[in-house]
Amino acid sequence: MTKSELIDAVADKLKLPKGKAELIVNCVFDAMETALKSGERIEIRGFGSFEIRHYKAYEGRNPRTGAKVDVKPKRLPFFKVGKELKERVNLGEGPLDDDDDDDDDDDDDLLAEEAAAEDR
């Protein structure tokens, strides 16, 4: 399920116009992003919690070439699934979506949004 499918599902369930559902879903994730940016922990009961973890600088290697790379210190969000959802996911059935690790669609989506904005 993508964000736009989530928006459709929320609009459907709540009998809201799609535009309104879009504002709502965006608002939810924007609020979470703002909290994480300020280093704040997020706790959503029944779902899970997010916290910022700090990672030190280290010397890594490009796995393809073996060349040394300096990795700068960074902050990353860490998600811990809540007890209720953890149990539901473990007991759940149904085929798993492929484990393709694609997070780069984000950039595609953003580029598409920018292109759409330019068209307007």
């Binding site: 399920m1 993508t2 964000k3 989530l6 599902a9 929320v10 369930k13 709502i24 879903v25 939810v28 994730f29 992003e33 959503i44 029944g46 779902f47 959802l85 539901r88 996911v89 759940g92 059935e93 149904g94 085929p95 798993l96 979506d97 669609d105 984000d106 989506d109 953003l110």
Partner: peptide
Amino acid sequence: VFDTIKDRLEVGEKIKISG
């Protein structure tokens, strides 16, 4: 919003929130 996400995760679906 969260119930919808949880229902999908329960059946093994992946949730992709761009950005």
